[in-house]
Amino acid sequence: MANKSSIGDVINEKDSTLRDKKYNDYVKQVTPKFSCFRNCINAFIVGGIICTIGQVFFNLFMNFGLGEETAAAYNIIVLILISIILTCLNIYPTLAKFGGAGTVVPITGFANGVVSPALEYKTEGQVFGIGCKLFIIAGPVILYGVFSAWVLGLIYWILKVLHWV
């Protein structure tokens, strides 16, 4: 990773694989980095706030006398709704530019990933536009989430049949 390559090394390198590697090292050196520390602080604040908002709603629903699971479900619905409204108002992207992972990681990021292509591809029609493209970002999350849960569920079932759990 930390190989130092000058551009001279790159140009004078005859082997193209080595040259590419040296060039990539060189590019890494000359490309300035985002301040990772600043990003982290921003992600902490934005992500923290989103989770806290979730907690506020969750406690609210619990106070209504809902069970824990139902309260959690309503909580998710509210957060998704808020995220979609903020996306439609063009606020979520601005928030994301500032908050980075703070907006990607919470469930609101998932909702943003569903609604943003839906809006973008609206012009390409109800079926092939919205219908297909709705899932371009969320689709992989659903697929791999469901698949990994399925595999783990299968293991759980086997262990259960064997009376290991």
Binding site: T31, P32, K33, F34, N39, T87, C88, N90, Y92, P93, L95, A96, K97, G100, T103, V104, G109, N112, G113, V115, S116, P117, L119, E120, Y121, I137
Partner: peptide
């Protein structure tokens, strides 16, 4: 953006480069 990157309303950080 639509063709090569993300939908406009998708929240993401653009690297400095």
């Amino acid at each position: 953006e639509k063709q090569f990157r993300f939908p406009l309303e998708y929240g993401s950080q653009r690297p400095y480069s």
